[in-house]
Simulated scan of single mutants.
Amino acid sequence: MYDSIILRSVARLMLPILLMLAVFMLLRGHNLPGGGFIGGLVASCAIILQLVAFGPDFARRVLRVNYLSLAAFGVFFAAVWGLPALLTGQPYMTAFWIPDPIPGVGKIGTPVLFDLGVFFGVVGVTTQIALLLAEERNPREASDAGTAAP
């Protein structure tokens, strides 16, 4: 973690911009490049930028969830959206779409909902890994703390 006023100022400014970009990438994923994976990476980069600028405690307050549970939910959510096809006798993950597009969003269907699950899974896994690495104690610091004089 750096104690830089410039880094902290940029991190605060970039958080909403990166999160909006993540949602944009998520929603445009089936017609143009993007989708749940890249949207999830951009969202986790927004949180990791807060981690670098302010530390792990602040980064955990950005989104008050258990990131490992978020990843598990994302995998489950993504897998569920293949089931409607099985219920109609079609192969798993066959896409279903609503007939009319939603203004400003586009067509919504099971692939978009699958991508939403991927988004949650990627945000959960990548952010949890970054937080674990940031919170890991250096073995040298741990041994120095144990031998320090009172």
Rank of each mutant, 00 (worst) to 15 (best):
M1F: 09
I6C: 11
L7M: 08
L7H: 02
V10D: 08
V10E: 07
R12I: 02
R12G: 01
R12H: 01
L13R: 00
L13D: 02
L15M: 09
L18F: 12
L18R: 10
L19N: 09
V23Y: 07
L27H: 01
G29M: 05
G29C: 01
H30N: 11
N31V: 04
G34C: 01
G34D: 00
G35H: 03
G36R: 01
A43D: 10
S44N: 11
S44Q: 12
A46N: 15
A46I: 15
I48F: 05
L49R: 05
V52Q: 12
A53H: 08
F54K: 11
F54M: 11
G55K: 13
P56N: 03
D57M: 14
R60S: 09
R60W: 04
R64I: 06
Y67M: 08
A72T: 07
A72V: 10
F73E: 02
F76C: 10
F77W: 09
V80Q: 06
L83M: 14
T88F: 06
Q90Y: 03
P91T: 07
W97Y: 14
P99N: 14
P101H: 08
K107R: 15
F114E: 05
F119H: 05
F120V: 02
V122W: 10
I129M: 04
L132W: 14
E135C: 13
R137C: 06
R137N: 10
N138G: 04
E141N: 12
S143V: 11
A145R: 15
A145E: 13
G146Y: 08
T147I: 11
A148P: 04
P150N: 14
